[in-house]
Amino acid sequence: MKIKGFFNTICLSLLLVLNVFGEANARNIIEEKQQTLATDSDADGVDDMIDLCPNTPSGTTVNAHGCPVEIANCDYTSNNVSFGTLSTEPVGKETRYLLVDSKSTKIVQISTTKTFTGLVGSNTYMIVAFSYENDGTVTGLLVGSLLSEVTASCSDFSRALSVKICSPFVERSQCDYSTTNITLNKATASPVGYITKYLLVNKFGTMVQVNDTPSFTNLSGIQTYNAYSISYSNDGSISNLAVGNNLSNVTANCYDWSNPFPVKVCICNPNICLPITIVKTKSR
């Protein structure tokens, strides 16, 4: 699947219009753009000029950008997803590829390589290319920001590719730990000025432990978990980061996840895990 790019670079084309056609014609073109702004071709309640998903089927629930909030069927079943040519990148401009949660319209990942990694659970996303003039005016281009907060003095978005990514849980065959308390090593240092928590998540995406250190206690049974760290801004915006909540529901103004680290814990119940000797007897 591909996104058809439509980088108009409006700020540059208007300058060209003024130089070539003069002020009167430029005014006519601006009026035409304003008329287009009031057009909603697919009747989804979002004007064509800001609709990143044109031709949405009738009856589809869409977000503020005109893209489906939820897609029923999975398009991809992987933790790491790469895409081909998403758009035609404007020459001389910076381009970033954004993985955006369709329901919250918050940026989940930002990529320069059209690849998104460490995905968990099943979710509907918008994949959008953002090209901009690298003149220091870009704002809001951060994980956790709303897509609508991304701006620059001269920039444009591509149309969005709406996809549902169903990332499988990786079940480990071998046991990594056989004790009720485990401590994992920190892969990277915590960002300065941010709060970092460490999570143990089961195969359903439910957080079973949320701690200040990568140590998890009172484990039982035989089970594979995914361990994560999450760093987020200390502004009180973090929500749903609690035991019993699903990982996909965690949000904050500014946050980032580590990649999942699968571990299998095997705590053997002595009433079940007893050595058994099988003896063949010969009947007479």
Score class of each variant (00 low, 15 high):
68 P>V: 15
51 D>T: 08
167 S>I: 15
9 T>S: 09
260 P>M: 10
51 D>G: 03
201 V>L: 01
50 I>F: 10
105 T>E: 06
75 D>R: 02
40 D>P: 05
112 T>R: 14
115 T>V: 11
98 L>E: 09
120 V>P: 08
84 G>R: 13
94 E>Y: 13
160 A>G: 08
163 V>W: 03
230 I>E: 00
90 P>N: 08
30 I>E: 04
262 P>G: 10
229 S>A: 11
8 N>Q: 13
130 F>L: 11
257 W>F: 14
183 T>W: 09
62 V>T: 08
198 Y>R: 09
165 I>S: 07
254 C>H: 07
67 C>E: 05
64 A>R: 08
142 L>P: 00
64 A>W: 14
187 A>F: 12
23 E>Q: 12
114 K>Q: 02
42 D>Y: 02
263 V>R: 01
68 P>D: 13
127 I>M: 15
3 I>Q: 13
217 T>F: 00
85 T>L: 15
81 V>H: 15
238 I>A: 10
109 Q>R: 08
71 I>H: 00
151 T>I: 11
104 S>T: 04
176 D>A: 01
195 I>T: 07
86 L>V: 07
252 A>Y: 10
146 L>E: 04
161 L>N: 01
174 Q>P: 01
97 Y>A: 06
151 T>A: 03
201 V>R: 00
25 N>H: 13
147 L>E: 06
211 N>F: 11
64 A>Q: 14
100 V>T: 03
23 E>F: 02
4 K>P: 07
198 Y>L: 11
42 D>T: 02
49 M>N: 09
199 L>E: 00
94 E>N: 01
22 G>L: 05
185 N>I: 09
269 N>G: 01
118 G>Q: 01
97 Y>V: 03
11 C>Y: 03
192 V>W: 02
60 T>D: 00
180 T>P: 04
267 I>K: 08
111 S>C: 00
62 V>W: 07
243 V>H: 10
103 K>R: 13
139 T>D: 10
220 S>H: 05
199 L>F: 04
143 V>A: 04
100 V>I: 07
141 L>C: 01
217 T>D: 06
167 S>F: 05
117 T>N: 11
97 Y>H: 09
12 L>S: 05
6 F>W: 03
143 V>Q: 08
274 L>D: 07
95 T>R: 05
82 S>H: 13
38 A>Q: 15
227 A>F: 07
281 T>N: 11
277 T>A: 15
35 Q>G: 14
266 C>Y: 06
199 L>R: 00
